[in-house]
């Protein structure tokens, strides 16, 4: 495969803690399971965590730092996932890398990785400063992760502005940590509110799911074990849509069962 057809995708959000790294890990595993050769790149050099979510923290020998310095080959730094060998992680180097890393360095690393992978997912740091701009320089397209909260949506908007002015295309949205009950009670921004405000196509909708915490405890992304939990299904569907499959989005209003959810649906139905 030539690097020209490799899809290099920035996973970003602006705000921290909305689920960038969780999405990167789960999407990486899901794409790998669908037969795509996938590399995930931890571009959060200050506060790296992608290794931890993938359960690969004990297998890191070299990092992007040594690759750039030329003291090891790329293949030595890439950590292959044991259960899912289609997936490899390029770990972030020492936080001091932030002092000298340039956008050109990131482009160089991503170009090297692209040579032998179909998908390169770049886990961006929170914020819109240097670290984010370095990560953005290496990507062609982007997935913006946000939650239905005012602070996360505002920060996402700022990031989308930066992505637009840097010619990143397409930019798609993943709405994370949706609570159907709160949405039904109109105590949480509706899906349409967020997509209207940010004016981005929705690539995925992930319900709040306690299993995500359990999976991070173990270092085993949910998508590794099929689609038993709602979040695992959602992440797997994000991967399928990313590959061009037409998978319908879930309707949060239909998720709740029982009288309360039914009442909620009745209450939020448009009268006129």
């Amino acid at each position: 495969m030539s690097a020209a057809s490799t899809r290099t995708i920035l996973i970003c959000s602006g705000k921290g803690g909305v689920g960038k790294t969780t999405l990167t890990a789960n999407l990486g595993i899901a794409l790998a399971k669908q037969g795509m050769r996938t590399a995930v790149l931890d571009a959060d050099f200050g506060l790296r965590n992608l290794d931890l979510l993938l359960g690969l923290e004990n297998r890191i020998v070299y990092t992007a730092q040594e690759v750039l310095a030329g003291t090891c080959r790329l293949e030595q730094a890439l950590v292959k996932h044991k259960q899912e060998p289609n997936l490899a992680l390029l770990p972030a180097g020492n936080p001091r890398m932030l002092e000298w890393l340039t956008p050109e360095d990131m482009q160089k690393i991503v170009a090297m990785v692209s040579a032998s992978y179909d998908y390169v997912l770049i886990d961006a740091p929170a914020g819109i400063e240097g670290g984010f701009k370095n990560a953005m320089a290496a990507a062609r397209e982007a997935i913006v992760v946000t939650t239905p909260e005012v602070s996360a949506v505002r920060d996402a908007d700022r990031v989308i502005g930066l992505l637009n002015s840097n010619g990143i295309q397409p930019i798609q949205l993943v709405l994370n940590r949706v609570r159907p009950k709160m949405m039904a009670n109109q105590e949480m921004l509706a899906v349409n509110d967020v997509t209207d405000i940010l004016a981005l196509p929705l690539l995925g909708l992930v319900l709040e799911d306690e299993q995500v915490i359990v999976s991070t405890n173990r270092g085993e992304p949910l998508t590794l074990h099929g689609t038993s939990s709602p979040a695992a299904r959602a992440y797997t569907n994000v991967a399928r849509r990313l590959r061009g499959e037409d998978v319908p989005l879930i309707d949060p209003a239909k998720e709740g069962r029982g009288l309360r959810a039914k009442l909620g649906r009745l209450m939020t139905k448009k009268l006129f």
Binding site: N185, Q186, L271
Partner: peptide
């Protein structure tokens, strides 16, 4: 206008927090 909006308006209740959030964000 939803049924909830209608009831809230009839009872003179304040708007839902989601609606407030949307307006503040915009």
């Amino acid at each position: 206008m939803t049924l909830r909006d209608l009831i809230n308006r009839l009872l003179g209740r304040q708007q839902t927090s989601a609606e407030t959030a949307k307006e503040r964000l915009q």
